[in-house]
Design a protein around this nucleic acid. Structure first.
Lengths: 230, 230
DNA sequence: TCTCTAGGATTGTCGGACAAAATTATCAGA
DNA sequence: TCTGATAATTTTGTCCGACAATCCTAGAGA
């Protein structure tokens, strides 16, 4: 019956109230207007967005499930802030999943390397021009390309959730870093491995790249992290 | 996520209404009173449990985030039912994370192997006695032991979510299987690798064990799966 | 300065209400 | 009988207002 309908269908459907609220909060976090650790109260958003408390509550829960916020009973929600230990834990999981994504996506990306090549070119340009914010965005898109082409939606979702809670730290690293060239060199190497269809090297390259990202994040000053409970 | 995971059951805090509802639904799914694919309406639970619709709604969302239910806009929630393709996708992720858990937990379990040995003895007894339901339960506890001792709560949560949506199929396999001995043999082998502190073999053993579980599940008849959308 | 205690602020839960969407039932026509 | 369109019913999404339980904060008292 509905064979014609909504195969690609991005934003055709009328966005629900909850989705609108969730998008607004997400945008605020991405834009730095809400910073990690900051507490969000329901009333603040009911007033500002003109929606009911129910909708705000549900948006909060949804974003908490996405890893962007963290909810505590009777204490409301805050923008997720990771401790150094949690960053290490996250990167252990991320390493395992990103290498899996590389492995699964390699055939697809090797067969149709167009988007990868194009993205690599943009990354090179941004790195050369020193446009850090733009490089950070492209870096996200680069990793997205792999998990999207892994042909495993569950893997994609799981990785996306992890990276959601990592967004801010990753962004800080890119902006503060005096040397994105090393990061970009790793991208180039990985891209080359894909082009050569060298699975083993590609996996190793991704693993090293993720480890580098971890080290860069851990090199940020303490005030970017939640206190490590211990 | 934490609401339904009362394995050690820290019942200290008075359980919230939502948690009560979530526990009831979880118990119903575990007990087979709610089967995969079945649709749950809000009213049915408001009446039966004597709580408001708000609480039921929130419990639904929470369980959907846990992977036990699946929610679709304007269509309510159903008990999650996987297609064969989704099972494969899930096992790809599970394999990566479960081997990571082995790797991380090995030092701890090798240093204090008591619980592992005890659990292995119980598994042997259940397998010998042909108590399949009991074996299934112990099998779950066996895997739980690894991810709990990996020292990585995020890994634990992520794996738990995956396994939640797999509970029913895993249970069917155990109950229907005419040969749990092969599965138990793999457990014994893995236990031995831990005792010997042989990391490489332990990882390989787990990988093989997970792959075997996948094959057993895929050998179930079609009516246990959602139609594969392709 | 520190501890303890109001009081205000915030969340958890309830009940009802209504429009929008989906599901089910009904029925005319082939 | 079957099919397809239409109407009736159910269910969800969202809103509102309310209240108790809990958390937070500022000020009183030691």
């Amino acid at each position: 019956m509905s064979a014609i309908m909504t195969v690609t269908a991005p934003e055709t459907d009328s966005p629900s109230t909850v989705a609108t609220v969730a998008d607004a909060i997400t945008a605020a976090v991405r834009g730095g207007r809400l910073v990690p650790g900051q507490r969000l109260t329901e009333n603040a958003f009911t007033a500002r967005l003109g929606v009911s408390r129910s909708s705000v509550r549900e948006a909060f829960r949804q974003l908490a499930a996405d890893g962007l916020l963290v909810a505590e009973p009777h204490r409301g929600v805050t923008v997720r802030q990771l401790s150094r230990g949690e960053v290490d834990n996250l990167f252990a999981v991320r390493g395992a999943l990103e290498t899996l994504a590389v492995q699964l996506a390699l055939p697809t990306l090797h067969a149709a390397p167009g988007p990868l090549i194009a993205l690599q070119a943009e990354l090179d340009a941004a790195a050369e021009a020193g446009e850090m914010a733009r490089f950070s965005d492209l870096n996200g898109r680069y990793h997205l390309l792999f998990r999207r082409n892994a042909g495993n939606p569950l893997l994609d979702e799981t990785l996306t959730r992890l990276l959601n809670s990592l967004y801010w730290l990753q962004f800080r690293v890119m902006v503060d870093s005096t040397d994105v060239f090393e990061t970009n060199r790793q991208h180039q190497h990985l891209t080359a491995c894909i082009a050569a269809a060298d699975a083993a090297s590609a996996e190793a390259a991704m693993r090293e790249h993720v480890e580098t990202a971890r080290l860069l994040i851990q090199s940020l000053p303490d005030d970017h992290f939640a206190p490590d409970p211990r």
